[in-house]
Simulated assay, not measured.
Amino acid sequence: MGYTAQGQIYNKDVAAKLDVEFNDEFINIIASGLNKTSIDKSLRYVITAFVLLEDGTTVKEDKEERFVLPAAEKKVLNSLTLPRRDLRRKIILLLIYDENDKIIGKDRVVFYGDDKKDPDLFSFEQDPNKNQQEAMDEPDGIVLRGLVIENTKTKPARDFYREYYANYLAKKVNSEFIITIDELLALGTNTKVEVKVGDALVWQFFVNPRSDYISDMADIALNRTIRYLQQQKRDQNTIRKY
């Protein structure tokens, strides 16, 4: 399978934004979208809260909804409330998808919760490998690393995601692209799973509930993911040389 390198440009036409407000007991996070164009947009948002537990595992909770964003307007999409005094590390991620289910807007806020004097500290993460100018050259100065987003509907597809992600963590893959695992309707009542790195489709297959088949697909998909990321890195190094 061939790959086409495609850069991920977010928040260009539609900007995702997470605003944070503090009071004595809670942290309020307001998610909004801004349509920068002169055309009404039919969109979908997903806001996800990741919480790192003491045993090192991560739990997540999603909220999603389709919405219409009028031209040149900003709309509040949803909100979350967190306890102010909570030492657990938390990540709040907002993604906005277009009518083709492509991510076009993103924002993220991280609550580190590891400062005993002030557990309320938070910041937006930037790629530590970029210098200040390179970070400023990004569309919004934010780089999401290591994220695997799941949009599955059936148990076999969820099993695939769990096995893929477990192997992803075990091999310490840290993609600077968002990886999405989508389950889509295919022929008849069948479904298929697509694995994308950024906008590039690296693997797809028809869902089959056999556990050995799911394991094989997870192995192949991760190998294709790693191969694609390695190719992207080689291409970037070649561009820098010239």
Rank of each mutant, 00 (worst) to 15 (best):
G141T: 09
E65S: 14
S79D: 07
V68Q: 15
V68G: 07
I142W: 02
T81E: 07
L82P: 04
P139C: 08
V59I: 15
P70Q: 06
D101L: 06
R66I: 10
D86S: 05
L94Y: 00
M136I: 13
E125W: 03
G105V: 01
V59W: 05
D140H: 09
L95D: 00
K90C: 01
L77M: 04
V51G: 04
S79K: 08
K74D: 08
P83L: 04
L53S: 11
E99I: 01
A135K: 11
E61D: 11
K106R: 08
P83A: 04
R108L: 11
A49V: 10
S79Q: 13
P119F: 10
P83N: 03
P119H: 09
A72E: 14
R89P: 00
N131K: 07
D115T: 09
L69K: 01
V109I: 15
S123P: 01
A135R: 12
L77D: 02
D55L: 08
S123Y: 14
F67M: 05
D115H: 09
I96Q: 03
M136W: 15
E61K: 14
F122E: 13
L144D: 03
G146V: 07
Q133P: 01
L144H: 04
N100D: 14
A71M: 06
V51Q: 13
E134V: 10
K130R: 14
T58W: 10
F124R: 15
L80F: 03
G56A: 08
T81S: 09
D107T: 03
T57A: 11
L77G: 02
L93C: 03
I91Y: 02
L80Q: 05
F111W: 03
N129R: 11
K117G: 13
D118I: 05
I96V: 11
P128G: 04
T81W: 00
F124S: 09
K130I: 05
I104D: 00
P128V: 04
D62Q: 11
L52M: 12
E64S: 14
I142A: 04
I92E: 04
L94A: 00
D118M: 06
V76W: 00
G141H: 07
G141Y: 10
I142E: 14
D127L: 10
L87C: 00
E54M: 08
R145G: 06
K60Y: 12
S79H: 07
V109A: 03
P128I: 04
K116Y: 10
K74E: 15
L87M: 03
I104E: 00
K106L: 12
K117S: 09
I142Q: 12
D120L: 12
R84A: 10
